[in-house]
Design a protein around this nucleic acid. Sequence first.
DNA 1: AATGAATGAGTTTTCATTCAT
DNA 2: CATGAATGAAAACTCATTCAT
Lengths: 236, 236, 236, 236
Amino acid sequence: MSDEPLAADEILDGVYRALCAHGYASLTMQDIADECDKSKSLLHYHYDTKEDLLVAFLSRMITDYEEQLEDEVDDSPVDRLALFLAQFVFTPDEEERQSFHLALLEMRSQGPFNERMREQLVRSDEVLRETVADILRDGIDEGVFDAVDPEQTAALLVATLDGGRTRQVTLNENPTDVSYTRAVVEQAMTHIVEPLLASDVELPPLDETLAKLSAVDSDADVDDVDEPPHSSAQES
Amino acid sequence: MSDEPLAADEILDGVYRALCAHGYASLTMQDIADECDKSKSLLHYHYDTKEDLLVAFLSRMITDYEEQLEDEVDDSPVDRLALFLAQFVFTPDEEERQSFHLALLEMRSQGPFNERMREQLVRSDEVLRETVADILRDGIDEGVFDAVDPEQTAALLVATLDGGRTRQVTLNENPTDVSYTRAVVEQAMTHIVEPLLASDVELPPLDETLAKLSAVDSDADVDDVDEPPHSSAQES
Amino acid sequence: MSDEPLAADEILDGVYRALCAHGYASLTMQDIADECDKSKSLLHYHYDTKEDLLVAFLSRMITDYEEQLEDEVDDSPVDRLALFLAQFVFTPDEEERQSFHLALLEMRSQGPFNERMREQLVRSDEVLRETVADILRDGIDEGVFDAVDPEQTAALLVATLDGGRTRQVTLNENPTDVSYTRAVVEQAMTHIVEPLLASDVELPPLDETLAKLSAVDSDADVDDVDEPPHSSAQES
Amino acid sequence: MSDEPLAADEILDGVYRALCAHGYASLTMQDIADECDKSKSLLHYHYDTKEDLLVAFLSRMITDYEEQLEDEVDDSPVDRLALFLAQFVFTPDEEERQSFHLALLEMRSQGPFNERMREQLVRSDEVLRETVADILRDGIDEGVFDAVDPEQTAALLVATLDGGRTRQVTLNENPTDVSYTRAVVEQAMTHIVEPLLASDVELPPLDETLAKLSAVDSDADVDDVDEPPHSSAQES
DNA sequence: AATGAATGAGTTTTCATTCAT
DNA sequence: CATGAATGAAAACTCATTCAT
């Protein structure tokens, strides 16, 4: 019955918005407090230190992503792979997601200096690569992919997509320009994925998958005007 | 003939070492001053603001890299490509290298917040992609590569290598472990580069190119004990 | 009839334990709440402010001490004086005692800044000096002490004992070491008390009185495992 | 020739004044900064932490006291002892010194919680007791004192005087009232010191020594209106 | 060219207190 | 009675920058 969102969660939502607005490097507790309309002291009431808060944020993000993945297990390997590729492409209206991935990139670069953060980042990396490896394994079993090494190929794909996205978010001054990532994803489809497919299998075109993606999003997002549905998370 | 290095340059060297030691996020003017044995005030004498100093550092780094590239124009396209792949991710002094790329990654994530930094980063990206595109164009002209789109393929390769390196430096707690990058580079050779080669052409194995690389470095490094020769730079 | 201790009293017990554990300077309401397993809010329900709570604590402590004194009026002046000397500085549970006196010393030093606290401290000082003066008066009347000025001599004795204890608790890193105090008490007996005695009167040796003290305590302490019986209080 | 006082010293002077004005428990870096007309940041420039600053303050205080002692070595043991006793008595115009001793008492009660502070306090205690013990030893050698145990007797005297002062500063609401300490000192002279003297030796009356003390002070204090001459320090 | 001293604006964190339930 | 949640004011400390020399 309790409609009111829990403060601890609202704070994490504030972290998301504050990261988008200010980036990680210049993120202050005050920024977060402002974004969730709470007092700084309350942040410390729920999370002892700033680090605790950020670790909790990363952790929720990854868990949300894992939960989202479970919804997709019924699709065919080819569709799941297409979906995975498409998720890396920002659509022009996703300005916010670009800011977010930028902030995430900043946090990632803190990993080596912070044990607890690195733990989360490594976990995130494993989720990501394992997702692709699972898809590949399923596809190989079903005979729709050639018998490549699933782990190695997954590493290649994740590196490529992540590299494309990284360059997109770091280099672009116009946050609605998505050409860099899109080009990389399309090249990855042509040079890496398509040569893997069995002769009678076809990868759906990127635009088609993107269209499907935004349809799903509109469904889900009915009342999430400003807020990520604990889900825009996908990472590292 | 004046042997004594210019203070302005010694300061930039200090930036390099301070970035390796502390990362970008927690880099203070004092850190840099300590690394180059100068006073904070002197840094401000030569560079008005911290931002000026970091922009100058990025700029010198890219210029150094460009100069280094000019030494390689005489090699064959295949060798140059092999060299590029190898160089991107390995150097004889791995540990320092990784911390440096980590710091660079942090700076890259500041690009969107800082016009002048982004300028340098974009320039660096162009140098990088243009280098690969040039190699590809030369190779296509000479008939050793298939007639792919040089720009697009260059973007794919750069994204892949950069993505691999990024994941390596952000996820690894052991800074001398390069297995992640190596796997990605090898996969990139197999899945992306080799399918491009004319039927009678062979890409030299990674190890061979690496061996060549360290031979060259030993030659050059005679008196570079502690200091980057204004050159370890290469980026973004 | 009602066995359950009153919350207001349990809170004061918490103050005692929290003072021993943390000292006065860094004593927080949370510390006290933790020690009595109540919420901070409850402390404020029973005592409006932190100051109120501490004043109440001091007040109860002194009252408890006064009550304890009444038990001793039947003894001879010499015995009562010996007891006073011994009691002032030693108790069976030394370690707890020292931390408590330390905390008390901190509170005492707040007196000049806090009217209400000073009131209690002054009252405590009067109780203490009056106790000794009474003993001296009784002894002079009975002819066992020389005819000194009871008030002045009481002031001297109290200052000496308090000074010894203060130096003990502030200087010693080992809280069970009482050698400093013992030395001072013995010197006080030799130099101050003994010259006061009529020629046929003898002060019982310190060890003997101490033995008596611990015997009494063991009797009383049957069910006081963890808690001060509202009584360890005695002070300055 | 440099007339201007060193900032580091001015800051320590500020600590003295701030301690007098605010006490130790509520002493903030801002209070100290205000008292010495410097910025908080400058305090941190010269002393890394608040603790460092306070330790430095204690340390200078003790050193100053030791230096002052050296001026007195030529006096006779009886005079030196009289002087020592008198120094514990505040004269009515020494309101400031009372506040200071109060603050010092607060710091002393922090000893057990702070290793570095305790070090200074122990050193101070040793200086104080050794001073008296030295006087006693000299006097015994010269035959003006009875052959008491110098260390033990010194401990008794220091405890008594310190206890008197402690009670004075903690209990008195009127900071110009010095009756408590004065009474204790006089009692100590009568009951403890005088019985020690050889039959032909006399202790100069307290008032006389006090008069001598203030004469010396007026000499020295010519231009120290508001400032302790790095010397009001004397302590345990 | 070079430095030590100094500062203001800002950061995280602490804590007594209040409020709704 | 009792509590968890929430807050505002203030604390120590940091850091880029400036200034006098």
